[in-house]
Computed example of a mutant assay.
Amino acid sequence: MVPVWDRFVRVFHWGLVTLIAVCWLTADEIKSVHEAAGYLVAGLIAARLVWGLIGPRHARFADFVRSPRAVLDYLALLRVGREPRYLGHNPAGGAMIVALIATVAGTALTGWLQTTDMFWGSEMLEEVHELLATLILCLAGIHIAGVVFESLRHRENLVTAMIDGRKRASERPHN
């Protein structure tokens, strides 16, 4: 077993999961908790953006953000069962991280904007906020399905890896 996910990435991941659940559960009931959790989400996203530039190898965006062509090539190999195993995120996983971070950031931004004088009471902005929040759930569902699929496909528990930070070393992981 080799270390892959550093403590910050793991705390960020599970903290974000927890805070998004809190936001969903308090959206229409406990506005003060919803807003506080939203600000914490925004803080986590900002910290992750910095960590994606200065963190260790597998935390850096340069390690897992790939071109659309690379993502499509990986998905084509996946479809025929010939995709390589990655020690860090595979190209599809990297694309999901980018989509989730962008969607979560957009949700936090539209939530905060609704507290400003300019957008207070804006129904249009509220609808965008709710649409983005729903998109988070859709993306999270796809992310979970991908984690389960990859865990089964490569015979490794990716959930455990995101808890303890370690993955099985292999003879020749792709990265």
Rank of each mutant, 00 (worst) to 15 (best):
M1L: 10
V2F: 10
V4G: 02
V4N: 00
W5E: 03
D6Y: 12
R7D: 11
R7T: 15
R10H: 07
F12E: 08
W14S: 04
G15Y: 06
L16D: 03
T18A: 13
L19M: 00
V22N: 10
V22W: 13
V22Y: 07
C23Y: 06
A27V: 12
A27T: 12
A27H: 11
I30G: 14
I30V: 12
K31N: 14
H34Y: 09
E35H: 15
A36N: 03
A36R: 12
A37G: 10
Y39W: 13
Y39G: 13
Y39R: 03
Y39V: 06
A42R: 01
G43T: 09
A46V: 13
A46Q: 13
V50C: 06
V50T: 15
G52I: 05
G55E: 06
G55Y: 02
H58N: 07
H58M: 13
A59Y: 04
F61C: 08
A62S: 15
D63N: 11
F64T: 01
F64E: 02
V65D: 02
R66T: 13
P68F: 08
R69L: 10
R69G: 07
A70P: 00
V71I: 09
L72V: 13
L72S: 10
L72D: 11
Y74R: 00
Y74V: 01
Y74N: 03
L77Y: 04
R79T: 08
G81I: 01
G81E: 03
G81L: 02
R82G: 01
R82P: 03
R82W: 02
P84Y: 05
L87H: 00
L87W: 03
L87K: 08
G88N: 05
H89V: 00
N90I: 04
A92L: 08
G93Y: 01
M96C: 04
I97M: 13
I101T: 10
I101Y: 05
A102R: 12
T103M: 14
V104D: 05
G106F: 09
G106W: 04
T110R: 02
G111W: 03
G111Y: 00
W112K: 04
W112E: 07
T116R: 02
D117H: 12
W120V: 14
S122M: 07
L125F: 12
L125E: 02
E127P: 09
V128L: 09
E130M: 01
E130G: 09
L131R: 14
L131Y: 12
L131K: 11
L132T: 03
L132Y: 01
A133Q: 06
L135E: 02
L137A: 12
C138G: 15
I142R: 12
I142K: 05
H143E: 03
A145M: 05
V147Q: 12
E150S: 14
L152N: 14
R155A: 10
R155E: 05
E156T: 07
L158R: 08
V159N: 05
T160E: 07
T160S: 14
A161C: 13
A161K: 07
M162C: 13
I163E: 06
I163V: 15
D164P: 02
D164E: 06
R166Q: 06
K167V: 06
A169M: 14
A169Y: 10
S170V: 14
E171D: 15
P173F: 07
N175F: 12
